[in-house]
Amino acid sequence: MTSRHTPAALTPGLVLLFAFCCGAIVANIYYAQPIIELIAPDLGLSSTLASLIVSLTQIGYALGLFFLVPLGDLLENRRLMIATALLAVLSLAGAALVEQPNLFLVLSLLVGFSSVSVQILIPLAAHLAPEATRGRVVGSIMSGLLLGILLARPLASLIADHFGWRAVFACAAGVMLAICVMLATTIPSRQPEHRASYPALLASLWQLLRQQPVLRQRAFYQACMFATFSLFWTAVPLELARHHGLSQSQIALFALVGAIGALAAPVAGRLADAGHTRQASLTVLALAALCFLPALSPIGAGVVGLAVTGVLLDFCVQVNMVLGQRAVYALDAASRSRLNALYMTSIFIGGAIGSAVASLLFEHGGWTAILVAGTALPGLALLAFLRDTAKARQLA
């Protein structure tokens, strides 16, 4: 089943715009994480309730992935993205202004929920891209997404240090308003031909999950990888501050160095387009399982070794994500938004688990515990990949 959309050349400028929008939108989920210790006392939140700011934002994102993103297969995509982005503007502006702690928590949930417009944008790009270059296009756009994840925390810290925590949300609201204008004026429209009721659309998610083994496999691999990614980037600021004496500004610079790995996405797309998905997946899963090991050497135990781990890990996570998306989007063009919803929900569940256990592991076992868990998770994905590959060869 095909989809009707306004014919449009996916120019390099439009791909760059898609990438910027993805990064700016997904960053909304992460702005609050490094500044909750500034937000909580100002609003009168206890330390226990302060953690709900991050949790509710992530819960909101998960709800949006499940209940909102599948609508990309049913409703006109541009209008859906604009409506969702406008909700993000209102939620972020409200977070910058409110004084009541309970209302701020509700707005945190809405910030996460409204940030899923990024997951409507990516399948739209896949629809617009020619088959021969789809992996390259998706890879380029995913670079923007990962950069948004990596840069959101240091940007929030720097803005809050100079202008206060409310300025972080005010700036984010301004960026989202600009994105609304860009979406309205530059993004092609696309009206899906899929016809179903909303309950039937949601019910089809389970059917797709059951019917598509490739979706289940790629979602599991990337969930393990993203859990490792979140584990590292949650724990490494603690390690740098406590054992290496880095300031918040220096930790922000460290995150910028780690973001170099995000540049791998276009490479991953080209590999997928050329038919090298299996070999590339094997390589990055194995490399991810080994990238924590520099910390075992006297040289690698320092800041440089941690930076090497961060760059390699970001590279592997980004490559594997794009390879997975390329494979998943090829399953059924008419179901891309729903397939993407399932794929990304699995990934962010993995990320939430990685973030949740990072502090606990670090407090009880130090960096050694992070190293063990960070090696085990991609190792588990590697074993699953080898098993699935062996099964596929037996059936061939």
Rank of each mutant, 00 (worst) to 15 (best):
L16R: 13
L17S: 01
F18T: 07
A19L: 14
A19R: 14
F20D: 03
F20E: 05
C21W: 00
C21F: 00
C22L: 13
C22M: 15
C22T: 10
G23E: 06
G23F: 03
G23L: 03
A24H: 03
I25H: 07
V26F: 10
V26T: 12
N28L: 02
N28T: 06
N28Y: 05
N28V: 08
I29E: 15
I29Y: 09
I29M: 08
I29H: 13
I29V: 11
Y30G: 11
Y30I: 10
Y30M: 14
Y30E: 01
A32C: 05
A32L: 07
A32S: 15
A32I: 01
Q33M: 05
Q33K: 03
Q33Y: 09
Q33H: 06
Q33P: 03
P34G: 09
P34D: 09
P34S: 04
P34Q: 05
I35V: 15
I35Q: 08
I36S: 12
E37W: 10
E37A: 15
L38M: 15
L38G: 15
I39L: 03
A40H: 07
A40T: 11
A40I: 11
A40N: 11
A40K: 01
P41M: 01
D42Y: 05
D42S: 12
L43F: 00
L43N: 13
L43A: 06
G44H: 08
G44S: 03
L45A: 03
L45R: 11
L45S: 03
S46W: 00
S46T: 07
S47C: 00
S47I: 01
T48H: 04
T48R: 04
L49T: 06
L49R: 04
L49M: 09
A50G: 08
S51N: 02
S51G: 14
S51T: 09
L52G: 02
I53Q: 11
I53H: 06
I53L: 13
I53Y: 08
V54G: 07
V54I: 14
S55L: 10
L56G: 11
L56A: 05
L56F: 13
T57N: 14
